[in-house]
Design a protein around this nucleic acid. Structure first.
Lengths: 366, 366
DNA sequence: TGACGTAACGCAACAGCGTTGGCTTAGTCT
DNA sequence: AGACTAAGCCAACGCTGTTGCGTTACGTCA
């Protein structure tokens, strides 16, 4: 029964909001921010001086519009902070360092043997992180890890996976990496990381959005009213195991007609059209349920045929929502390509430290 | 880019939290509340004195546990405030008055002619509300209206409906009723109202829950991390038009295999088992997507065969989630029976005034 | 019966964040 | 040069929660 915002959680809410506006890249001014945040210009002055003191923002100069004292412009200082992000799969590790705005400064890629035992995995992770840490300037905030399958972001533990003989299952990757690196570590589901990454660099745009990720499986993440949805057990977004064809193809999960089973089967038959139709159904169901106005698509499986897929989904949405007269739903392809999840994991660290408090509801710990 | 909690929105967050705890009915004490809210006992004293001054809570007495000064007990004053709730359908109006705890004090039921023009509808609504307003004590906070189909809760306007020649379509029920009654009016989707009502009387229990409502159609509402999901255009929860059987039965919405079409067809064939299976699929899909730990079922169509339906859904959830080792998902039948939506609409008014601010994100206006 | 320990509670001063009101600064326009 | 205007600073204040210390009311034990 904890209130959403005791003073110590709200402390800095306005500071974070100013930082979010500044993240867009354009210089910001006192009056505009006051308008945007619905506070007095005087409050913005105090906020900006706090942020400047922390090195997050800096005065850029001043411009004069007509009569009166010229406006002082402020801007974010991207190189003041950094975070490392890692996309971890069973066969590959893709790592990046990103600055405060989420811009990628450097990349690393490492192959992993399938079924690699946990201690080796940790040392590969740690050495990649240490390597990446040598690039860029500014305080290093921590390491984010995005991985497929359900993950407990508080404990940093992969939960059950489809293969019960999983070497990583139940391993506290977070704690092991934390002791190895002596640096905050945040572990989360890959699609959630991806959505955080997409929205960090375009603040406000994806406040009501879903991201559908098609890598080896099919996953989703949602941001509703600006808040990332985690769910009661941090398992929100298992779109791959929602049933779209009752009585359809059997799925390893034990049910029939799961979206993922139908999608993978269509790909196996090289039926791009059917695969896109399954994806479109998943997207439409999501839009109907949570009423988002933007949908982002990403993942290797989508990049391979993105033109066909995007067209099919856009067409299906136009057909499906026309009768309902939903406002237009924008369908976007991820802006980050193969860096999607690694960049997102880095942005999760940034968001944890400097994001709006509303984005942080629910369990997530560094 | 507004922050989630500027001070004036947070103002009273703790007060609301105390009120929420007290709403459970049991007397509350300083120490326990301080523990629950993570503030000092001294802060609780101030909060309780503010709430007492507003008449919302009162000192109940004191009890002594062992040595030391005895604990002063406080309790909510249910009769200090009231709200009216109305469940409006095309053929019937069901209205209630509820006290601050959501307890129903009085009911009214009025038949409506199908296709009744708007001015007549408003006068029927207003007279029912005025009648109900004579019952119970305490300040009357306003009128809540819950109705099927998409609704814009800011403007209080029913949006598109399946029948394009709808007499009510686009009518600003909120504004008309407001001028007629000179009292705050809140209009919302029926399933959302129902969920607010269920959770108001059991604060905290349904912080991560969905409610599936089966009346003439099939609807849903979600509460995630304590926040009611409204969506970008207040249309979240159209579970009836999610596709569960691609290529299945045609639906008036233009697509095939929508849950609602499959469900209604099964009922028409008097195949309770299939109907329950469709419902179970909808519920399982919801659980997979947003990972709630409680599911509430309600609506006339469910009450008719609730034993069969509940058993089928529980069985399907056990089967479907076993492989995923999800935590147990509790499936509950609505506690309010036919009052579900009317009571919920009243509770929406109460929640708007005295609920936790986190529950109020998104568009909703009185 | 009185002294002592204990737990709940109140009062007063303080801290953080935003607001208000008044003043200063630095430009354009006449 | 002087008037006008918009931006920005300083100081005092309001609200809410915290801290420190004193007060109250109860049980227990000598």
């Amino acid at each position: 029964m904890k209130p959403s915002g005791p003073l110590d959680r709200v402390a800095g809410a306005h500071d974070a909001a100013v930082l979010a506006v500044a993240r867009r890249g354009e210089p910001v001014a006192r009056t505009g921010l006051a308008e945007a945040l619905q506070v007095t210009p005087q409050a913005i002055s105090k906020i900006l001086s706090r942020l400047s003191e922390r090195g997050l923002m800096a005065e850029l100069g001043s411009v004069s519009f007509g009569p009166g004292k010229p406006t002082t412009l402020y801007g974010i200082v991207p190189e003041s902070r950094r975070a490392i992000g890692v996309h971890l799969t069973r066969t590959r590790l893709h790592g990046v360092v990103a600055d405060l705005t989420g811009q990628i400064l450097e990349r690393r890629e490492v192959e992993i043997d399938r079924g690699q035992p946990v201690p080796e995995l940790i040392s590969v992770l740690a050495s990649a992180a240490r390597d990446l840490a040598r690039h860029g300037a500014g305080e290093l905030l921590g390491v984010g890890v995005g991985m497929p399958g359900p993950v407990d972001p508080v404990a940093g533990v992969p939960l059950d996976s489809s293969s019960p003989t999983d070497a990583w299952r139940g391993a506290s990757i977070r704690d092991l990496l934390l002791t190895e690196l002596d640096m905050p570590v945040l572990v989360d589901h890959d699609s959630r990381a991806a959505l955080v990454g997409e929205s960090w660099s375009q603040p406000g745009l994806l406040d009501n959005a879903v991201l559908v990720l098609a890598e080896e499986g099919l996953g989703a993440a949602m941001r509703l009213d600006g808040t990332i949805v985690r769910g009661a057990h941090s398992r929100a977004g298992e779109a791959g195991h929602t049933v779209v064809r009752m009585g359809g193809r059997p799925c390893p999960c034990g049910r029939r007609g799961c979206a993922q089973a139908e999608y993978l089967a269509a790909l196996e038959d090289d039926d791009q059209e059917l695969a896109a139709e399954v994806l479109a159904t998943v997207v439409l169901n999501l839009v109907r349920l949570v009423d988002v106005d933007r949908v982002v698509l990403g993942g290797r499986s989508i990049y391979a045929h993105h033109q066909v897929t995007m067209d099919a989904i856009r067409a299906a949405l136009d057909r499906g929502l026309h009768a309902g007269a939903h406002g237009h739903v924008e369908v976007l392809l991820s802006t980050r390509g193969v860096d999607l999840i690694a960049a997102g994991a880095a942005c999760e660290v940034l968001e944890h430290e400097y994001g709006l408090p509303s984005a942080l509801v629910g369990p997530a710990a560094l």
